[in-house]
C-alpha cells in the first residue's frame, strides 16, 4: 500500500513538472517579443537587449526553465509587468477571490447533485421527470448566460440579491486578509454585516457557476444509483427488513459515489480555471480577467506561474478524490482485489 502511495505521489510530481515544462515551451514558441512589448515600439536595440537580459531572456533555454522552477519553489514567482506587481501578490489576491467562488460552487454542485439524484432514483414519476428536466437545462445552458438571466431576474427585477458589483457592497471595506475568503475573514473578525454582505454577493455567481457541474453530477449520480439499486446486495439489504430510504442512504449512496468522486477533482479544477466568463459578468475580481490580459501581453512570469499553480491544484484535486475513494471502498486499499 505504501508503495502504491509513493507511486501515486511520484506520478503526480511528474505530471506537475511536465505541465510546467509544456507551458514554458508553448509560451516561448508564441510569436512576438515580450521585451519589445515592455520597452515600447521606439526602443533601440541596446534598450531591447537590456530589457531582455533583465528579464533573463538572453540566457539558455534550460537555464531559464531551471531558474523558473527553482524560483517558484522558493516563492519568488517573478514580476508581472502587465499587472505592475509581484506575480505572487497579484495571483494570491486574485486567486483567493476565484477560489472562494469555485469552492462554494463546488459544494453547491455536489450537495445539490446528491439531493437531486436521490430524489430522482427514489421517487419515480413526476419528481424524477423534474430532475431530468433540470439536468438537461443545466447541461445545455452556458454559465455566463445563466449569470445574466439571474442578474436580470433576482437582482434587477426582484431585488433579492446584489447585482454585478464584485465581492462587496461599495460602502464596506474588505476584511483584513487571513484566508482571503471574505466570508471566512469577516466571520473571523466577528463582523456579521460583512459576512452577510459578502455571502449575498456570492449567491448569484455561485449558482451560475455551479449549475453546469451540478447538472452533470446529477446525471452521473442518477445513472450510478439506478445501477446500484439493481444490484443483488440491495435486495439482500431490503430482505433484512431495512426500510427503503435507509437502504438508500447507507448502501446505494456509498456505492454510487465511487465513480463520482473521481470526477470531482476534475470538476473542482475546471471550476477554478474556467470561471473567467462568470467572473466577467459579475465583475468579480478573480484571476480570469487578469490572466487573459497577461496572455495577450505575453507576460511570461504571470502565465507560467498560473499554469503551474493550476496543474498543482488539478493534481491535488485528483489525489484527494482518490483518497476519498479509498476511504469509501476497501477493495481499493488491497491491491489486486478484483471484485
Amino acid at each position: 500500500m505504501f508503495r502504491d502511495i509513493r507511486q501515486r505521489l511520484l506520478a503526480s510530481a511528474v505530471t506537475i513538472v511536465l505541465a510546467s515544462f509544456v507551458s514554458f515551451v508553448v509560451l516561448r514558441a508564441l510569436p512576438g517579443d515580450p521585451a519589445r512589448l515592455i520597452a515600447g515600439p521606439l526602443a533601440g536595440p541596446e534598450t531591447l537587449a537590456a530589457t531582455r537580459s533583465s528579464l533573463g531572456l538572453d540566457r539558455p533555454f534550460f537555464a531559464q526553465y531551471g531558474q523558473f522552477l527553482w524560483n517558484f519553489v522558493r516563492g519568488d514567482w517573478g514580476y508581472s509587468f502587465s499587472v505592475g506587481d509581484e506575480v505572487r501578490e497579484a495571483l494570491t489576491s486574485r486567486l483567493t477571490a476565484t477560489l472562494e467562488l469555485a469552492l462554494y460552487a463546488f459544494v453547491l454542485a455536489v450537495v445539490g447533485a446528491l439531493v437531486c439524484a436521490s430524489v430522482a432514483s427514489f421517487r419515480p414519476g413526476f419528481r424524477r421527470g423534474l430532475v431530468r428536466l433540470f439536468a438537461l437545462v443545466g447541461l445545455g445552458s452556458p454559465p455566463f448566460w445563466v449569470g445574466l438571466v439571474l442578474i436580470v431576474v433576482f437582482s434587477s427585477y426582484l431585488g433579492w440579491w446584489p447585482g454585478p458589483s464584485g465581492r462587496l457592497s461599495p460602502q464596506l471595506y474588505p476584511p483584513e486578509p487571513v484566508t482571503g475568503f471574505y466570508t471566512v475573514d469577516f466571520a473571523l473578525h466577528g463582523d456579521l454585516i460583512g459576512v452577510s454582505d459578502s455571502a449575498a454577493h456570492l449567491v448569484l455567481p455561485v449558482v451560475s457557476l455551479a449549475l453546469l457541474p451540478w447538472a452533470f453530477l446529477t446525471r452521473l449520480l442518477t445513472a450510478n444509483m439506478a445501477d446500484t439499486a439493481g444490484q443483488p446486495y440491495i435486495l439482500v439489504v431490503r430482505s433484512k427488513g431495512v426500510p427503503a430510504w435507509r437502504t438508500h442512504v447507507r448502501h446505494v449512496l456509498a456505492n454510487s459515489l465511487l465513480p463520482t468522486v473521481s470526477s470531482c477533482g476534475l470538476i473542482l479544477a475546471t471550476l477554478i480555471t474556467g470561471s473567467v466568463l462568470v467572473e466577467t459578468v459579475f465583475n468579480w475580481p478573480g484571476v480570469g480577467a487578469m490572466l487573459t490580459e497577461g496572455i495577450s501581453a505575453q507576460d511570461f512570469a504571470l502565465v507560467q506561474s498560473f499554469i503551474l499553480l493550476s496543474a498543482i491544484l488539478y493534481v491535488v484535486g485528483n489525489l484527494v478524490g482518490d483518497a476519498v475513494n479509498r476511504m469509501i471502498d476497501a477493495r481499493l486499499r488491497t491491491p489486486g482485489a478484483a471484485r
Binding site: Q231, P232, Y233, L235, V236, V237, R250, H251, A254, N255, L258, I328, D329, A330, R331, R339
Partner: peptide, 9 residues
C-alpha cells in the same frame, strides 16, 4: 459474489 455490499465490513 454480488449479494454483499462491497464497501461495508
Amino acid at each position: 459474489l454480488t449479494s454483499l455490499d462491497p464497501v461495508k465490513p
